[in-house]
Design a binder for these strands. Structure first.
Lengths: 203, 203
DNA sequence: GCTACTCTGTACCATATGGTACAAGGTCGT
DNA sequence: ACGACCTTGTACCATATGGTACAGAGTAGC
């Protein structure tokens, strides 16, 4: 036996980390368990021990991402409070994708896209994350509407949908084209729209 | 031998058709060659004969889609000429997705998303289709701008990107959520934006 | 009839896949 | 020291995968 078993569930964390990156980059189907094991330097017995099945691993990865996004180490502030926050939030994804050479989209979206109708629990995991993001955004828009900065006729939740679709679509198209310019252009237009909404407030 | 070999490349067409549907529904990775063979009722020898490899089949499927979209049997008019055409074009994708229970996104996008960096030729196939669509849309916006219906400061190509990202993102999110409302809401906002652009023309 | 070509069925192969069995090492509480 | 428990290595398995080999049937041209 090479390594001592002192590091406890160190292997578990390494597997989660490796899986998260591989899923992000290749999706679930294109990523085999063995690939995760090789990347994390672990064995099949640990895998079975900690996650039992591949779906089990995906589940833990999604949970991991969920707490990551909601916690203090989130890569960007999801608790949007100001219009500036919203612009920062949108622009973040453009920059983030370009940093990695436009070879990957949203980690959660990539996994969600690979799910079949049978993987009910995993779809629930994905939905939970999306719902939370949508909640953050719609809360922001609702607050702004209450302040009269948005017309009463505009639905805050539909604006949240608008932002989410822009981000998911932008990352998706960017990945396909290996080029972030379409995403960049789209965010510019989206921001122009949101500003026009903002300025159109009654009173 | 059950069937006579009179029907010529009938088998070939059936395989393409089956593959196209399976790729659309599951992506490339989740679709095995055997699955295509079972669905099309053909054998492995035909497959090797006509397409040689799996990538070869994907290539033909993409070409098939390409000529389909550009031809008279296209599911929607890509040769947008009027603002009404554009609205019809955008709304078509919302309706098309809902017709099939929101279990699939764009056929081309789905395939493009599954490509690795090594599949250069297939990525080229995808890019060709996307570039053509982008060309159709940007041509329309350029024409409208020439007529003074759009401000000179607005880039027609970036508006085309905006529309493509909305459609790809909407279909993508719809597939993940198995629900088309986010896409629907997003298209409504996008159309509102495009109308605001339209009315802002100088003169 | 003979040959060349197209089409198709059967069999096969090396590899990869997800998953299981089982035993053994290490740690801790007693 | 003892046993319980957590962790890990090795070996294995049934199945699926993409792909190949090869021969037989059908058809057309000469």
């Amino acid at each position: 036996m090479k390594t001592k078993s002192i590091p406890a569930d160190n292997a578990r964390q390494r597997m989660i980390q490796a899986a998260q990156e591989l899923f992000h980059l290749q999706g679930i189907h294109a990523t085999s368990v063995d690939q995760v094991l090789r990347k994390s330097g672990t064995g099949k017995s640990q895998f079975s021990h900690y996650f039992k099945t591949k779906d089990g691993l995906v589940h833990v990865v999604l949970q991991n991402i969920h707490v990551w996004l909601r916690g203090p180490d989130a890569p960007v502030n999801y608790g949007v409070q100001t219009w500036q926050d919203l612009e920062t939030w949108l622009r973040f994804f453009v920059q983030a994708q370009q940093r990695y050479g436009c070879d990957r989209a949203c980690p959660v979206g990539t996994i969600g896209n690979d799910l079949s109708d049978k993987q009910v629990l995993l779809r629930q995991d994905v939905r939970l994350i999306f719902e939370w993001v949508r909640g953050q955004l719609s809360r922001f828009f609702a607050e702004r509407r209450a302040l009269g900065e948005i017309k009463d006729t505009v639905d805050p939740e539909s604006l949240a949908d608008f932002c989410i679709v822009i981000v998911q679509g932008g990352l998706f198209v960017g990945k396909i084209n290996r080029d972030g310019s379409a995403f960049d252009n789209t965010v510019s237009h989206a921001l122009a729209y949101l500003k026009s909404i903002k300025q159109n407030h009654v009173e």
